[in-house]
Design a binder for these strands. Structure first.
Lengths: 331, 331
DNA sequence: AATGAATATGTAAGGGCTTACATCCATTTT
DNA sequence: AAAATGGATGTAAGCCCTTACATATTCATT
């Protein structure tokens, strides 16, 4: 069944059917309704490929995500997908892992599927030299990044003010007189770098320096964070007073370490997570966490993209503020 | 740039270029390499729409998921996506929520995008009457369901033996002499129904009956489960001895309730989760959980689908076994 | 009633690929 | 040496839309 069948059954030309389907051009109300009724009656769906051939777009946006099984990215992807659909776009999902080569392939793949744009969830790597494939992709379609930014034409970054989020909350600890503050982080990404500098800046502000031994990189799992925190707790002669983390899942690990070391939380040690995910609510005691507003970031990203499609004037970088959600691991 | 450009640059016909691109038909090794080098040199990518028009497929599978922000579904989608890509298929993601109307729309949408198959993640509803749209869809493309099954042509179910998983683990409690065992569940789905009957069956096996007041349905959040468990703890004259749940996130809520009631875990009360997700590892004390093997289910689903594409003989229902992962909330 | 503008509809030319069928050529067979 | 075979390649039709342009119709204006 194709547009010709509908046209002949409705006694009109295929052009008229097409116009009805696309709501473009002039069709009399009467004809329009008649055609629609035939379409309904025969259960006709236009062939997306033929349509794509004509329009060179099938309203599909590629989502590039390093790992949707991560609860944070999952929330982002979920929000993006919903918001896109509401705007009439579908989502082609591509999870790439953290490997540059794979991501290059994924971008090529999305482009070969003729997506109308690419939305990146999950930070790129710090070595900007390896981002040439993103710049290339942006020559073909708009490229929107969440929690990341590259200053180049046709690239839009929706980021959270991670620097100040960490700086301010670290400062709170410092103002309480604490100095033995550890920082646990996992990835060396754009936003990861911001958070780390935020941590350091809090110390600099007070003309102090953070102890380099207390800044620890570890794998993205509670187990890894637990191990690292236990190590710090054992090694330090002076007691660890607080732990700041780049992700709730690390904070949970730190929390487990503190609990197993018999420390009272938050009296003996305070812990602060990042992302305000389900993990923060599930931890025991419940985790204080910096909410960097994934949903808002995601919605903003999609809206930005829609504006770009509509040739509206859009700023290349949008910065949102994080917000602390206080629970039981801080005073 | 199109296939004609490549053909003329290579001094061959478009048919030959097409044959090289698709690896079909006979092309001499020499010509093939020459054409490939031109393609490489010019950076040519065949137009996916034109190709789709000819083949009526662009190797894309629709993933229908009620909610990717749920950590369990996120893992499933992530695994599916990876496995599909390895088999040369891409994933069109569609999150539908738990609403039948929305799901109908999503299925239509996937079909209109001419996906080669639909993969459903997340159970359908118990009222089979409302599954007519799935049966309809299966007339067009293979339909694979994870954790669900409808016995109809072209529908394949990859399920976990949820019934026995819950039955066996409930039995362990009963064999310990416990009788005041609560069951917390969230959704009234296919696998949800299996789990619930498994719970009941454990009692029936011993010619006992479960207390209907201890079988509680609640929303899918730790907070809701916490509240319900607190209610049970307060109401019951005889002490609650164990809680079985249909999802880790409910188990975490139950755990929080028990902790806040000052109970010793697992001495005073034992708790068992389901799915063995990150939440189980993050809980404190760490949660014993039934692992229903999402990754394996997902991989099996995709492999089944690939077999169906290859017209291999595939059984309509594949049942995998769950496995208990013991942590600190059971004896 | 004649003219022109605006609206409604139709015709036909792409858009870029796949593939059945036709053709050509180099082998092998008799 | 002629015929048969089969591999390599080309031609052209078809897939199903969109849309520029052409034509027909309607309506308002003079």
């Amino acid at each position: 069944m194709n547009i010709y069948d509908i046209a002949s059954k409705a006694g009109v030309s295929i052009a008229t059917v097409s116009r009805v389907l696309n709501g473009k051009g002039n069709v009399s109300e009467k004809t329009k309704e008649h055609v629609l009724s035939i379409i309904e009656e025969m259960g006709y769906t236009p062939n997306i490929f033929a349509r794509g051939l004509g329009l060179n777009s099938i309203k599909m946006v590629g989502i590039l995500c390093s790992d949707v099984s991560d609860i944070y990215y999952a929330t982002a992807v979920s929000t993006i997908e919903k918001e896109l659909r509401q705007s009439g776009y579908d989502s082609l999902l591509c999870c790439t892992g953290d490997n540059i080569e794979d991501r290059k392939k994924s971008i090529d793949l999305l482009l070969s599927k003729r997506v109308d744009a690419i939305l990146l969830v999950g930070s790129t790597f710090k070595e900007k030299s390896d981002n040439s494939h993103i710049l290339d992709a942006a020559k073909n379609v708009p490229f929107v990044m969440i929690n990341d930014f590259i200053d180049a034409p046709n690239i839009y970054g929706i980021v959270c003010d991670d620097f100040n989020a960490v700086r301010e909350n670290t400062s709170i600890f410092l103002e309480q007189g604490l100095r033995r503050i550890a920082y646990l982080y996992d990835a060396d990404t754009y936003s990861g770098a911001l958070k780390l500098s935020g941590f350091r800046a809090a110390f600099t502000q007070l003309n102090t320096l953070s102890d380099p031994e207390l800044i620890v990189r570890c794998a993205h799992s509670p187990e890894a964070a637990r191990e690292q925190t236990l190590r710090l707790l054992q090694k330090q002669k002076r007691r660890l007073e607080a732990v700041v983390t780049s992700d709730d899942c690390l904070a949970v690990g730190a929390l487990q370490a503190a609990v197993s070391a018999g420390l009272q939380i938050p009296h003996d040690i305070q812990i602060i997570g990042f992302n305000n995910s389900l993990l923060a609510r599930c931890a025991n005691p419940a985790l204080t966490s910096i909410d960097n507003k994934v949903e808002l970031l995601s919605v903003t990203a999609v809206r930005t993209l829609i504006d770009v499609f509509a040739h509206k004037n859009v700023s290349n970088k949008i910065v949102l503020s994080a917000e602390l959600v206080k629970r039981s691991t801080t005073i």
